[in-house]
Amino acid sequence: MWNWATHPVSWLSFLGMLIGTVVILLLTLVVVMYSIYWQRKFIGWIQLRIGPNRVGPFGLLQTAADVFKLLIKEDIIPNKVDRVLFMIAPIIAFVPSFMALSVIPFSRTHVFTANIAVGALFYLALSAITIHGVMIGGWASNNKYALIGSMRSAAQMLSFEIPLGMSIVGVVLMAGSINLNDIIAGQQHSVWYIIPQVLGCIVFLIASTGELNRTPFDLPEAESELVAGYHTEYSGFRFAFFMLTEYVYLFAMAGLFATLFLGGWSGPWLPGWLWFAIKALIYITFQFWVQATMPRMRVDKVMPFAWKVLLPLALFNLVITAVLKAVL
């Protein structure tokens, strides 16, 4: 039932897949819920505030209440929007984000992880699909702010995808495989790749921030300029889906970062899933920390930054890695 990766598909293994998906979905929802909670709490503390503290003990159920509120809201579809596109856009945005999770190895035993030979590539390919949802949403909204936001988003995600991919290639060279499980295995035998790949790691951190549309690259939804960017017209659960997409990607990116540079679930003493959780949390917290500190980049300086700084850096890192790999 659990070995669908190596055996032909049967009804039983299909059931296994279904159960696996539901489990991962629930896990993801909980993770998203509490990353939002942690974001609000952590940034609150930095800003000398308390953060959410009303719903449940220590406000632990605050996000649940927020989501519940969004779900019971009226599903508003404005009159002048492109109805069909407006309705499917959040779905197009969300589905790939969730699918990308399928290659992230959460723990030592890959129960719910597809052991795909091209894992890293698969992730990048899927994350590029989300941008269509964002663009369609922005276009269909028939709102000028949404349009500008979605166009910015498209331009930005395209630009950052390339340095992101290039920074991953360095790791792939070290491990000799694109399979994320093999990459972890490679790190188990030697050191975590954050040490030999420190430049690649920095590029990955910056590019992934841009890819996730988080501060200082949160131009697509820059609320002080574009009100809310591409989801200006969305409300209720469609809006919730856009938010969910964003945070699922945060989780997925945290998993990818942990896998590529911090050795994934590998580590002494503690169980694998706990190591994974700790490493993912480090990345997520770092994102929130930067969010609490940084102003936004200027839109006309983001693209040159991606193309003229990050990409050469990533390529440089790649060349060095290749040379070292050949020499050593």
């Binding site: 940034i43 800003q47 000398l48 501060t215 200082p216 949160d218 820059a222 940084m294 102003p295």
Partner: peptide, 16 residues
């Protein structure tokens, strides 16, 4: 001004 530029924390610090 910093809030306009997208940084949240300075706004709260100066309010203190």
């Amino acid at each position: 001004y910093l809030l306009d530029l997208g940084a949240m924390s300075p706004f709260l610090y100066v309010f203190i």
